[in-house]
């Protein structure tokens, strides 16, 4: 996809008509109109969306790795089918999201290359290893739950193609959540070995989960602009709070606990949870590619991309009508 030349877009401060167009654009967005690919938009809006959708798409295909590696071990026929379906959905979400980002002028190939080269980010949670089957249960329930809080909000955002992709993704994620909760119930009501496995997984995943929605509002540098342009409708802290309010009681009901160091307390007056602030420097360090398994995730993606090259080339040749001659 070729992006129209900058001159014709006049989408940066100082370009002819920029201020006037910006005022019209912001009025539209404030009314709740959806912005479509051919519409005028400030370049900064385009770039922010490309960045966000790209990270989101990368997170889907990197998220397929920790869970995918457990498909061969899934401990019942029902779990096996559900896990294949879930990981398949995630790859499908990646495909949908790359396509949404392509409407803004960046190709899928370019985005996957940037991911592999370590130039583009993906969600903090997928920089950690899935060590046991219980990790798959925790990812499918709690991380999907945290993701749904974020995606439901983003699905109301101003950019049409992204919002529509997210509507479909949220619909499928609801099934994943049910599947994840069901797995956690089985483990939590199972034998001691299963209960211990699940609690151990919660203990290891709680830090990445607390960090999932991103830095505190005090530290988040993009939030103000993203909210003005209705790319994002809730702050990171508000999303984290929504997740905690909804899911902590469910976890406690299953007999699960959260590591004491977080000092999670429910404030009856404000109906919110208070907690020790995550180490946001560590978060930044992890998402920049320095997490416990960041290098292995990228190497996995790089190798599978590299090994799939001959398939992609053959499919591209077939699609363009080029064929190798038939043997005699």
């Amino acid at each position: 996809m070729v992006q129209p030349t900058r001159e014709r877009l006049n989408d940066q401060p100082g370009d002819p008509g920029f201020e006037e167009n910006l005022a019209k654009f912001e009025a539209r967005v404030a009314r709740g109109d959806k912005v479509e690919p051919g519409d005028w938009m400030p370049d900064a809006y385009r770039q922010q969306l490309i960045r966000l959708i790209h990270v989101h798409a990368n997170s889907e295909i990197c998220g397929a790795l920790p869970e995918g590696t457990w498909i061969p071990h899934a401990p019942s026929l029902k779990r096996k089918m559900a896990l294949v379906a879930k990981v398949q959905d995630e790859v499908g979400h990646g495909q949908l999201l790359y396509r949404a980002a392509e409407t803004l002028g960046k190709s899928r190939e370019e985005m996957i290359d940037e991911l592999i080269e370590g130039k583009a980010k993906y969600s903090n949670v997928f920089h950690y290893p899935a060590e046991t089957w219980a990790d798959v249960c925790v990812i499918a329930w709690l991380i999907d739950a945290a993701a749904i809080v974020n995606q439901k909000m983003m699905a109301e955002g101003s950019y049409g193609p992204y919002a529509r992709a997210l509507k479909r993704i949220c619909y499928e994620e609801a099934f994943h959540l049910t599947h994840g909760y069901d797995m956690c119930i089985s483990m939590a009501t199972g034998t001691k070995l299963q209960r211990d496995m699940l609690q151990d997984a919660v203990n290891r995943w709680w830090k990445p989960i607390m960090m999932f929605h991103g830095p505190s509002d005090k530290e988040s540098k993009h939030t103000e602009l993203l909210m003005r342009w209705r790319i994002k409708l809730k702050t990171n802290d508000a999303q984290r709070q929504e997740f905690l309010v909804k899911y902590l009681p469910k976890m406690f009901n299953l007999g699960l606990t959260v590591p004491a160091e977080w000092d999670l307390k429910f404030d009856e007056k404000t109906r919110t949870w208070t907690y020790n602030e995550p180490d946001w420097d560590e978060f930044v360090h992890v998402v920049r590619g320095n997490g416990p398994v960041s290098a292995q995730r990228l190497e996995t993606r790089r190798l599978s991309h590299e090994h799939g090259r001959w398939v992609r080339e053959a499919l591209a040749a077939a699609a363009s009508g080029r064929r190798v001659p038939m043997p005699n």
């Binding site: 995918g68 294949v84 398949q88 790859v91 599978s304 398939v311 499919l315």
Partner: peptide
């Protein structure tokens, strides 16, 4: 089982999805 070993690491997203879907059906 064999075909689902590719789920998430297929050669192209569309093929990853199609192959996983047939694996799931066989299960």
């Amino acid at each position: 089982h064999r075909n689902s070993e590719w789920t998430g690491i297929g050669p192209i997203l569309e093929e990853d999805i199609a192959f996983s879907s047939t694996a799931q059906d066989k299960m």
